[in-house]
Design a protein around this nucleic acid. Sequence first.
DNA 1: TGAACGTGCATGATGTGTCAACTATTCCGT
DNA 2: ACGGAATAGTTGACACATCATGCACGTTCA
Lengths: 162, 162
Amino acid sequence: MTEPRWLDEREARAWRGYQHMRWQLAGALSRRLAADSGLSDSDYGVLVCLSEDPGENVRVGELACSLQWEKSRLSHHLARMEKRGLLLRQGCPSDARGAFVALTPEGRAAIEAAAPAHVEAVRSHFIDLLSPEQLDCLGDIAELVVGHLSRESSGDVAESGC
Amino acid sequence: MTEPRWLDEREARAWRGYQHMRWQLAGALSRRLAADSGLSDSDYGVLVCLSEDPGENVRVGELACSLQWEKSRLSHHLARMEKRGLLLRQGCPSDARGAFVALTPEGRAAIEAAAPAHVEAVRSHFIDLLSPEQLDCLGDIAELVVGHLSRESSGDVAESGC
DNA sequence: TGAACGTGCATGATGTGTCAACTATTCCGT
DNA sequence: ACGGAATAGTTGACACATCATGCACGTTCA
């Protein structure tokens, strides 16, 4: 085994910086969201997905797909959210194996109350700090990295269907 | 309450892209690390910190500080790692409240075995995909964001002492 | 000396994510 | 129509993070 190609200074700055930002920003935003609205990041994601759907009646699998979550994670999480009264699960008539998920009025109220402050937090901690060029640069980077990852894994097992 | 400033297209691309990248990349790297070496991200971080220290004998609080972890999280994690034989905790003679953490030979072997493949994974999934300009841009962004966050929280409660 | 307070760390309860079965249903080839 | 494979979703065991709390020790000051 040959000597590994350790990161040079520029690479290390980017990588460590990214890691640090990732951790700090996620912490700040999720603490803020939880304090403001009592929702976790995961709750927020689920509620956004449900509220974006026109019928507000979504199949569990569809939800799993758009959130990119594992089915079991979603199932557990839906159970917890259902217990809190944020949503309902009901059987699907056309496919008896399946289930629909729908927002309750409480769930709708929760996401509508939480969204403005959350967007504002994302802005103030992140988006508004960056120039248009930096936003584009970040968008490009993300596209590259995600594209590479999905291309690599697409040969893997399945085309993932999402 | 005035209408929130929702994200425009460029901003949304950057934010969604970042979120997506963050999730995908973390997943890919940690799955890879776990498969290659049986270590979690957290394990890896702890071992790196321990192995970087010259004496390889570190106070728990110091470790918590450089990892930016809560003390109790670290305490639990150290207990698990100690049970797996990766490290040892021993009392500190000069301060009877305190504890030292030290790598075992197994722990040292684990980090030395894991590091090259991990760096290679970071390269192939991330660093090597980016141009020098992109690396610098990302470094700048991270510096901005982290700087803003730490400036904001420094007025908060404590100077954090780290 | 000793009471009050701060520090370093451990512990227990709780919420959340992952993995590996598992159930129920549907699809499909014969 | 039947039997096996695929699909939708759930469940339980477990690993982990976080929070609140507890405990042992040290420091300060009356």
